[in-house]
Structure formats: C-alpha cells, structure tokens
C-alpha cells in the first residue's frame, strides 16, 4: 500500500506569532525524534492559505525550509519545497507525497499548514486561529498506509466562499465572503463524495473506524461525527475556526486518543471552497 504517517506536530498560536514562526516550528517539531537517513527530508509541501504580509513569492514552503536552525538544515539539504492549494489542501498534498513515495522518487515527505491574518486588523472577517501543523510521511509496508484518494468539485457552489486581497482607499485589505449556505453545501457535497469514494473503493461505510475531517466551516466535523458514527472529533472549543491546519489538528487529537489509536481504517475528509472535497482512505499500521 502507500505512505504511512510517521509523526504529527501542532503548534498553537495564541500570542500573535507569524506563520513563518509557527509553521517553521511545526516542521522542526515534526522532524524531532525521527531517525532520518542521510537524505533527510525529500519534499516539503505547504498548504497554508493565508500567509504573512500577503506573500506571493517565493513559495512559503521554501521560507519555512530556510527558517530552520542549523541542526535541521542537514536534514533539508536535498529538500524540494513548494506550495499547494486545493480547498483544504492537506489531503491533496498527501496524495502528491504518496505518489512520489510510491514511485520511489522520495523517501520522506512532509505537509505543513497554517494561517495568519496577513496584516493584523486589515481584513473584514478573518476569523481563524493561527495554529500550524505538520505531518511527516514515509513509505509503508504491505497492508498499511494510504490505499486511495478521491476528489470531487461542486462548481455550482463556487460562489459560496471567495476571498481576495485588494488595495482600496489607501489600504490593502483581505476580504472574505462566506455565504450562509456554505456549511450546508459543504455537508451535502462531502456526503455525496464519501458515498462516491466508498463505492469506487468497494468499501462499506461501516468498515471505516474513524473519520478525520476539516474543522472548517464551523459545524462541519460535528455533523460528520453525527452522520457517520461512533467517533466524534469536535475540536472547536474556541470561538475562532481552525482553517488550513484543521485536519492535522484532528489527526493529532486522534493519535493522542488511545482508543482511536487502535482504529484500523480511517477516512480523511477535507472540504474547502470550490466546493472542493478531497478524500483519502488510510489503514493504520498494526
């Protein structure tokens, strides 16, 4: 089968740190304690949406790579870094890494995600927490790891969420527009995609032990928990939403939960603007 998850790191941000700080720390923590070969980390993909200072170039992943202490640099001498966006992009990035691992082009890859309000106080409704997360993957053995990926796009709901920055009235502002129906549509699309994916993979929904999902929009993961099952993964204890790193947060929580650690088959459910649904099936290593 495919890639297995080796380690997960979360960096909480309650003190107004930049994504450069929290993202780099997440990368560093995720590598900590992992025995690396001489080749270190081969690929680093950033899926954060909202960067510090509306950065456009270079890829934020390269800045996170460059912002590591000397001790980590040795592990990143051969790293290839870039940014990827696909709704909530962690699952698509895992699909890319899984492929490069499968084709033997890399031995280890990492996804890092997080967001900040690009310029503090200059947005209409930036309501996300600035936490960051990272996931390290490497090639797994037989009968473990990722076994399939799936994407559906629902363009009829493309206007439900759109965000942009624009310089107007001598101010550069981030504008986020989210319709009242966005949550309902995300739920509707995710349910349909899950059914499509299960059918494609020939898997019964009862065979899924755990669903790990995006944490945005608010209420999405809670609904999935009610809909599909026994395991509730509701991380939303705060008023603000987890965004790009939400799925990694949920994954970390599942890992920490002893009961969930013993689960066999996991489905990752990410949903984002577009509406874009990215799914993955994962068999936990024994």
């Amino acid at each position: 089968m495919g890639a297995i998850i080796k380690s997960i790191a979360i960096v909480m941000n309650r003190s107004g740190k930049s994504y450069m700080e929290t993202g780099a720390e997440a990368v560093r923590n995720c590598l900590k304690g992992e025995p690396m070969g001489p080749d270190g980390l081969d690929m680093l993909i950033n899926t954060g949406i909202y960067p510090d200072n509306h950065l456009q170039e270079p890829a934020f992943a390269s800045l996170l790579q460059g912002n590591q202490p000397v001790a980590i640099h040795g592990l990143m001498e051969k790293t290839f870094s870039f940014d990827l966006q696909s709704g909530e992009g962690v699952v698509m990035a895992l699909s890319v890494l899984n492929g490069f691992l499968e084709s033997g082009k890399i031995e280890r890859g990492m996804v890092v995600a997080g967001d900040v309000e690009p310029i503090q106080g200059q947005s209409n409704q930036f309501n996300y927490v600035g936490h960051s997360g990272a996931v390290l993957v490497e090639k797994g053995g037989r009968n473990e790891g990722f076994s399939g990926f799936h994407q559906d796009i629902y363009p009829q709901f493309i206007k439900d969420y759109h965000s942009y920055s624009n310089y107007v009235d001598n101010e550069l502002k981030l504008i986020i527009n989210q319709s009242d129906r966005y949550l309902d549509h995300c739920i509707q699309c995710a349910e349909e995609s899950i059914e499509n994916f299960l059918r494609k993979m020939g898997v019964d929904s009862k065979a899924i032990d755990l669903f790990i999902s995006s944490q945005s929009p608010v209420g999405f993961s809670k609904h999935l928990a009610y809909q599909y099952g026994k395991h509730r993964l509701n991380l939303l204890h705060e008023e603000k939403e987890f965004y790009s790193a939400g799925l990694i947060m949920a994954l970390k929580r599942a890992r920490l939960d002893q009961e969930n650690c013993e689960t066999g088959q996991v489905m990752f459910v990410s949903v984002g603007p577009g509406i874009t649904v990215n799914l993955a099936l994962y068999q936990n290593p024994a």
Binding site: I49, I153, P155, Y161, H162, N166, L174, G272, P273, T276
Partner: peptide, 23 residues
C-alpha cells in the same frame, strides 16, 4: 502561476484558480 489577479488587481486566495479554469 505566482500572480493570482482576477478582476483587475484583486489577488484571489480562494477558491483555487484551477477550479475556475476547470469550469
């Protein structure tokens, strides 16, 4: 692309431009 300007000089964050292009 590096630049993501759509509708003048509005830098689009989301949705991904590939979704717009696909349509």
């Amino acid at each position: 692309s590096i630049s993501k300007y759509v509708g003048g000089l509005k830098h689009i964050y989301e949705p991904a431009i590939s979704v717009l292009l696909r349509e």
